[in-house]
Each structure stands twice: as structure tokens, then as C-alpha cells.
């Protein structure tokens, strides 16, 4: 089990500095699907260059909150968001805001790897092409190579750039999706259970990767694995039945949760 050794040790909050500036600020966020309220008055700060983990039992609204940050809820029929969410102080639900530009700033990695049915290269080049980030083929090549490198995939796919992305293994596909998100150079990367479809070794690779790239990005990750939250995140937010029960530094949440429900969840008594 060589891969276990590559697991990162439990993250230290001090490494990021408790005082790093807030990137995403959510205030009094309510989300409704039709009549049903999925999120209730959520206030949460996501700090720059930190990994924030969202945990909680199934159906408590973690994905819903994540999708608020890049307004992917917009496409869901009957979904309504109230309250204020700002990215670097700018209200992202402002009617003047360009959603397309916002999504370039806030990337997303999904639960199930969803590479496009295109070549590995074209998968990564997709975003940069759409946003006109490369002036010529050389620059595009560089962006692609860079993103793959940062996603820790370049070595494995260097001679397979023209093969279909769907032909990679599940773990490679997920890293390809991360590379694809990185390629548009976002500030924030949202990850919705990125490892739930992967085996422990591929999971370890991704966790390692998250820890590496956090120096350049702000990451929000939804996970069902307490261990994963403890390993990769600096801050943890616990949701329950649409409410944000408590949020704080990860070691604190896991060692001395203030709320009874949090305690129950992390010790596995319900969830």
C-alpha cells in the first residue's frame, strides 16, 4: 500500500494563517426549490488559498450551497436564491453580473468525472478557447501542458494527448476535469464529492493534488468522508437539514465541536 504514504498529513490551519482574506462571503442565503426550502439563512466565509470542506448528512444542502457560488442553480427550473453572496466583495447575484464571466472565475469539478467526448488536449483547451485566452497555438499548448502538469496528469498522458479523454481511467478522468477547470485560471474551484467514484489510490492522488494547488486557488470541497475533510481542509462547515450548524477551523470542528449535532455526525451517531 505504497499509496497510503503519499497521503498528506492532517492539514494545519496555521499554514494558511487564520487571517487570510475572505474570497467568498455568503450572508443570509436562502435557497428554494419551488416551495421547498433547501438552505436556510446560511452565513459562511471562504478564505483565500484555503480548502473549505462542506460536510453533513445526505440532502442537507451541501451541493445546493456549492452551486450557489457559481450560479449553476440558475439552470435548475424553479430554483430561487435570496440573500447575498459576494466574490472579492462583488455581489454575484447582481443583475448586472455576467454569469459566463463568473463561471470562468469560479471553476467546478463534479462528483462523477465528466470529460467531454473529445481528446485529452481538447478537453483542457476547451475553456481557454471559449474565453480566448490564447493568442496562438503555442500559447494554447503551453496552457494545456501547464494545467495538466498542475493536475499531476501530464506525465501519464504526455503521449496520449490526442486520445479521447473518456478513455482514461476514472481517477485520471477526474484529474483531467481538474486540469480542465484549472486551465481557465479560476480564483475559486468548487468540488462536489470529487472522489466518491474513485478507489483509495486515485483518491489519495486527488487529495495530494488539492493540497498542492491550494497555494494558488481557493477551494470549496463537499465530501462525505470525515477523514478526507480532516486531511485536506483548513476549515470545515457542517450543514444539517439546510442549516449551517457550525463552521470553523478543521481541527477544532473535529476535536471540539460546539454543537451537539456536529458532534453526533462526526462521531458517526447519525448521518
Amino acid at each position: 500500500m505504497a499509496a497510503i504514504e503519499t497521503l498528506v498529513p492532517p492539514a494545519k490551519v496555521a499554514a494558511a494563517g487564520a487571517g487570510s482574506p475572505v474570497t467568498v462571503e455568503a450572508r443570509d442565503v436562502n435557497v428554494y426549490y419551488g416551495e421547498k426550502q433547501a438552505l436556510k439563512q446560511v452565513d459562511l466565509d471562504v478564505r483565500r488559498h484555503e480548502v473549505t470542506a462542506l460536510i453533513g448528512p445526505s440532502g442537507c444542502g451541501k451541493s445546493t450551497f456549492l452551486r450557489c457560488i457559481n450560479r449553476m442553480n440558475d439552470v435548475i427550473e424553479g430554483c430561487r436564491v435570496t440573500g447575498r453572496i459576494s466574490l472579492d466583495g462583488e455581489d454575484i447575484y447582481d443583475s448586472d453580473l455576467d454569469v459566463v464571466a463568473l463561471r470562468a472565475r469560479v471553476g467546478m469539478v463534479f462528483q462523477k468525472p465528466n470529460p467531454f467526448p473529445k481528446s485529452v488536449y481538447d478537453n483542457v483547451a476547451y475553456g481557454p478557447r471559449i474565453h480566448g485566452m490564447a493568442a496562438n497555438r503555442g500559447e494554447l499548448d503551453e496552457i494545456v501542458a501547464n494545467s495538466l502538469e498542475r493536475a499531476g496528469l501530464l506525465k501519464e498522458v504526455r503521449d496520449r494527448l490526442n486520445d479521447p479523454g473518456t478513455g482514461l481511467s476514472g481517477g485520471q478522468q477526474q484529474r483531467l476535469c481538474i486540469a480542465r477547470a484549472i486551465a481557465v485560471n479560476p480564483e475559486v474551484i468548487l468540488m462536489d464529492e470529487p472522489c466518491s467514484a474513485l478507489d483509495p489510490i486515485a483518491t489519495a492522488r486527488i487529495e495530494e493534488l488539492i493540497d498542492e494547488i491550494r497555494a494558488n486557488y481557493t477551494i470549496v470541497i463537499v465530501t462525505h468522508s470525515m477523514q478526507q475533510a480532516a486531511r485536506v481542509s483548513q476549515r470545515t462547515a457542517f450543514f444539517h437539514l439546510g442549516e449551517l450548524v457550525e463552521a470553523g477551523d478543521t481541527p477544532e470542528i473535529f476535536t471540539s465541536p460546539r454543537d451537539r449535532r456536529t458532534h453526533g455526525y462526526i462521531t458517526g451517531r447519525f448521518g
Binding site: V100, R103, G127, H131, A181
Partner: peptide, 8 residues
Amino acid sequence: DGSAALGA
């Protein structure tokens, strides 16, 4: 969704 999330 993947495409939309990339800002397409």
C-alpha cells in the same frame, strides 16, 4: 453542466 461550469 461541465461545459456551463467552464463559462460556456
